[in-house]
């Protein structure tokens, strides 16, 4: 297939995934600020989701101060922010339209309908009452899209590139949300066991739909290092770095065999994969969780570039 087509599919799924992630981040922040007593702590939440979404820079270009309203607007519907939910949907739809012929009708309709519905949203939908509806809608559209992809796409290179984009984006997102919150996962003498900790840990788990999964797997109270283990190393947790890397090395292996050439991207993915596969959470925390996560984020950017160089340009 054309490299450009592969690239469009790769980014189509990335943007749909990113839209969902940004919606989940906003949800987390709303939840945290509505529970926390201190206003100052509340403001920090809005700042930290800007960081976690990578939209800090574009936000401060337009705004001096952080306010809930402005952050939500920037992340949800600001078209000048390429990572806002509505921008993601628009870009995804543009990519989808370009690749219309390699998509099933179900996938196209999921993407196209999302765009049409997004165009119908009015200011009323973005008030503090309306915004939860938009967040739920975002998650539903993204789920519907993924469902259409996995149940109607032919299992050929088009599908593999689409999946590759999905897992690269997801791994990156999970690493980012963990990194922004890494300090709450590290034991600090005066806060351990406090109410605030508990709220924040729960929020992290919820942001990646893992609150119930934690209890099913560990059968015990929330422990920060176990949360880190769940989201980094556990293969059964669908948004963990391990699970995403498992999918990616499988896909890169398939693509390498099918297309007759493997390159730096396969080697790099293998290296990242073994770090996780044979890593232990104690070692990771001892060596520095923050360092580990920023290394991972940097490596995943390089991996994305290598994939692009190998197949997509």
């Amino acid at each position: 297939m054309l490299s450009r087509s592969a690239n469009n599919l790769f980014w189509l799924t990335r943007y749909m995934e990113r839209a969902e992630y940004v919606a989940r981040l906003i949800e987390t922040a709303i939840r945290l600020t509505s529970m926390s007593k201190s206003v100052q702590a509340g403001m920090n939440e809005w700042h930290s989701i800007l960081e976690a979404s990578g939209c800090e820079e574009s936000y401060y270009e337009k705004h001096e101060k952080v306010s809930a309203r402005a952050v939500i607007d920037h992340l949800l519907r600001d078209r000048s922010n390429p990572s806002s939910v509505l921008s993601c949907f628009e870009t995804a739809r543009h990519n989808g339209r370009t690749e219309r012929t390699s998509l099933s009708n179900d996938i196209w309709e999921a993407v196209n309908q999302t765009w049409h519905e997004a165009r119908q949203l009015t200011d009323k939908d973005f008030t503090s009452d309306g915004v939860r509806g938009v967040l739920d809608w975002t998650k539903n559209r993204s789920l519907l899209f993924r469902g259409a992809v996995s149940s109607t796409m032919l299992r050929n290179e088009a599908y593999w590139f689409a999946r590759l984009g999905l897992f690269l984006e997801r791994a990156d997102n999970t690493a980012r949300i963990l990194d922004v919150k890494y300090h709450t996962l590290l034991p600090s003498p005066d806060e351990v066991g406090g109410g605030l900790d508990y709220v924040q840990w729960t929020a992290i788990l919820r942001s990646v739909s893992a609150a119930r999964a934690y209890h099913r797997i560990y059968h015990r109270e929330l422990k920060p290092w176990l949360i880190a283990e769940l989201l980094i190393l556990r293969p059964e947790m669908p948004r963990s770095l391990m699970a995403c890397m498992n999918e990616m090395i499988y896909l890169l292996d398939l693509l390498g065999r099918e297309l007759g050439h493997e390159g730096e991207c396969s080697r790099l993915a293998g290296q990242l994969h073994s770090k996780l596969r044979y890593g232990r959470i104690d070692d990771i925390i001892q060596q520095g969780l923050h360092e580990f996560l920023t290394d991972f984020i940097d490596d995943s950017v390089v991996l994305g570039n290598e994939i692009s160089q190998q197949y997509l340009t």
Partner: peptide, 16 residues
């Protein structure tokens, strides 16, 4: 941009 010319021959850029 999917096409390029090398020594007066036209090629397209594919995943292969």
């Amino acid at each position: 941009p999917d096409l390029f010319v090398d020594h007066n021959v036209v090629y397209m850029r594919t995943t292969r």
